[in-house]
Amino acid sequence: MYFVRRILFMIPLLLVVSMLTFVLLRITPGGPFDKERAPASPEIERNIKAKYHLDKPIHVQYWIWLSGVVKGDFGPSLKYRSHSVTDIIAGGLPITLLIGSMAFAFAMGVGIPAGFITSVGKGAWQDHLVGTLSILAICIPALVVGPILVTIFAVRWQLFPVALVGTPMHLVLPVITLGLYFAGRISRLMREGMLDTLKSEFIRTARAKGVSESAIITRHAFRIGVLPVLSYSGPMIADLMVGSFVVETLFRIPGIGVFLVNSSLNRDYTMLIGLVLLYAVVLLLANIIVDLTHGILDPRVKFE
């Protein structure tokens, strides 16, 4: 019931977000046609504007746009006029989602074991080594990691392709570039979560009952110790999106991140609004999934 309400609450939220973005971008003077050759006559300009409904009052424009969106049509891109926004999103979304989810898996797959190792061997050499590496990863953003990886592994040693997509080999460098920072963050969070959990009452009870230390760590503590990582994964998906803009630009990957940046530079308003809405939907859904998982892992959490 709680989650049904959460999903229903998305509708007014998305309406508000879309309305704000729409109005803000439509009242902005200047438009996508500014950078192109001036129309031959005022007549033609009027026709173009009429075709894209730019001559109507703003609430009418919003209504026209919204009734299209309900049918899955985000309107034409004002820059790439032979394509609709829906087409462009459908073309770029799979590759963005693929790289994003692989980076997510990479960050979890590297970060959780790393945090686990540092917490179990607290104060030992592996704690210092992996801990330092994690802090380094946090302070080296994607826009530094990416060019360095490209220079060394793609240009100098030519182990991986420099750019574009195609084979699985193309994905290695972008995924590492995108995921490394988050692997570091997760490693630190996991360590803190485990250390906090190992101090708690129910672990002491388990020890008193004579449960073996390895069973305590893997079966009891891990479940609760991983929760900080889980709560971080909501905001993390938002930051992954930002990172994906950089990664897509750097590796010339034809995902939707590139279109978001370009539509902002070109003032391609329909494109920008469509993408803002899409990102909002993805994030909202991701957060609902995170909360669901939270409830499954931690029996103390109750949703009402």
Partner: peptide, 22 residues
């Protein structure tokens, strides 16, 4: 928290870019 906040900065900067020349 659940909204793509950095994109709002991009939208905000885009809007400002349009208004300033005017």
């Amino acid at each position: 928290y659940t909204l793509p906040s950095i994109i709002f900065v991009i939208v905000f900067m885009t809007t400002l870019d349009g208004f300033l020349p005017r």
